[in-house]
Amino acid sequence: MGRGLSGWRFVGASVRGTSHDRSGTPCQDAHQARTVGEGPDGPVLVLACADGAGTAERGQDGALIACARMLELAAELVEAGHGVRQLDDGMLPFWIDRAAESIAVQAAAARRRPRDYACTLLVAVIDGYGAAYAQVGDGAIVIGDGDGYTPVFWPQSGEYANTTFFVTDPPERRSICSDVRASPPMEAALFTDGVQSLALRFADRAAHAPFFGIFFPALRAQPAGEAHSLRAELDAFLSSDAVNQRTDDDKTLVIATRFPHADAGEPATS
C-alpha cells in the first residue's frame, strides 16, 4: 500500500439549483469519486466533477460523459500497471481530449453539435506517490495538508463577463490547466462554480478555510472508502436555505481525506 492511500474516505453530491427549480430544468452538474484499482504506489483515487453549460441543451449529458471518461481512463492506467508516477503535465490534458471525443461521438449519434453538450471539468488522480490535477473552466480544486487549504488552480474566466471554457471548445481554444505533484494531499475538495462563492475568497485568491471545516471533521471519522452515510447530510447542506441565499446555481462538492480517524463533527448550514 502506498503511504496510507487505503485510508482515504470520500463522498460527493450534486444538487439542483433554485434557478433550475423555477425553470423546470434538471441539474446539469455531475461528479464521480471512486478508487479504480491498485497501482504500483497503492490504490488510485479518482475525483471528478463537471458542470453543463446553462446554454447547452444536453449539458447534463456532457457532464456525465466527461466524468465517466475520467474514471475509464484512470482504470486503464491502473490495468496497464501504472499510477500517478507515470503521468506528466500532458497526460490529463490528453484525457480531456479523449473526453471531448467521447462527447463528440454521442453528439453525432444524436445528430447534434458537440457544443450542445458543453461542460466544464475538474479531475484529481491520487495515489501514494502523488497527485495529478486538471481543470477546464470554472469551479476549483482545493487541497489541504493540515495547515490550511490552497486552490490548485483559480476558476477560469472567458473573454467576456460570466463566461468560461468548456471541454467541447475547439482544441485551439480549449484552456486546460494541469499539474502533477510528487506528494499526495492529505485532503482534497472539488466543486463546480455554484459552490465557489462559498469556498473561495476572491479578494486574495485564497480558499475560505471555515467552509471546509464544515465537512472534513465528519468525513475523517468514517471508515475507509465511500462515506455513503454522509451523502444525505451533504445533499441537505447544498440544498439549504443558507446556501441558496448565496447562489441559485446547481452545486456539486466532492471531498476526500486521508487524515487519521477523528471525532465526527456535525455539518452546519450557516
Rank of each mutant, 00 (worst) to 15 (best):
S14D: 03
A140G: 03
G90N: 08
M70I: 08
A100Y: 06
P170Y: 11
V180M: 04
T55S: 12
L121C: 03
A232F: 14
V243N: 02
P151A: 07
A124F: 02
V15W: 01
R115V: 14
G2Q: 01
D21R: 15
T269H: 14
D61S: 12
D138S: 12
D147N: 13
A68H: 13
M186E: 08
V142F: 01
R220N: 11
Y149D: 09
R205F: 15
R58A: 10
D21P: 08
E72H: 14
A99Q: 06
T257D: 09
V243P: 03
S23T: 15
G90V: 09
M1S: 15
D204I: 10
H20A: 15
G83E: 01
D193I: 07
L121S: 02
E76I: 15
V78C: 02
T252S: 08
G37K: 07
G265P: 01
Y160T: 12
E76P: 09
G37Y: 10
A48L: 06
L64F: 06
E79D: 13
E57V: 11
C119H: 00
H208M: 13
A236W: 09
R112E: 10
A80N: 02
R22W: 14
G194H: 07
V44W: 09
I176E: 03
G148V: 05
F153S: 04
G90E: 13
F165H: 07
D248I: 12
T164N: 00
G90F: 13
Q28R: 12
D249H: 08
V167M: 05
L5E: 13
S102Y: 15
F216W: 13
V125L: 01
H228L: 13
G265F: 06
V125W: 04
N162Q: 11
G4Y: 03
A63E: 00
E72T: 15
G213P: 08
R98L: 14
R9W: 05
P185W: 01
L47I: 03
E38C: 12
G139H: 04
V243D: 05
I141F: 06
E172V: 15
A182Q: 05
P43W: 05
R16G: 00
A218D: 08
R258G: 10
G17V: 07
D179Q: 11
G225V: 08
L45A: 05
A207H: 01
D179S: 15
G144V: 11
I214N: 14
G137D: 00
E187T: 11
E101I: 15
S14G: 00
A107H: 06
D116M: 04
V84E: 04
A242S: 11
S270W: 13
F202L: 02
V44L: 06
A48I: 05
R98Y: 15
V36F: 05
V152S: 02
T18D: 09
V78G: 02
T18P: 02
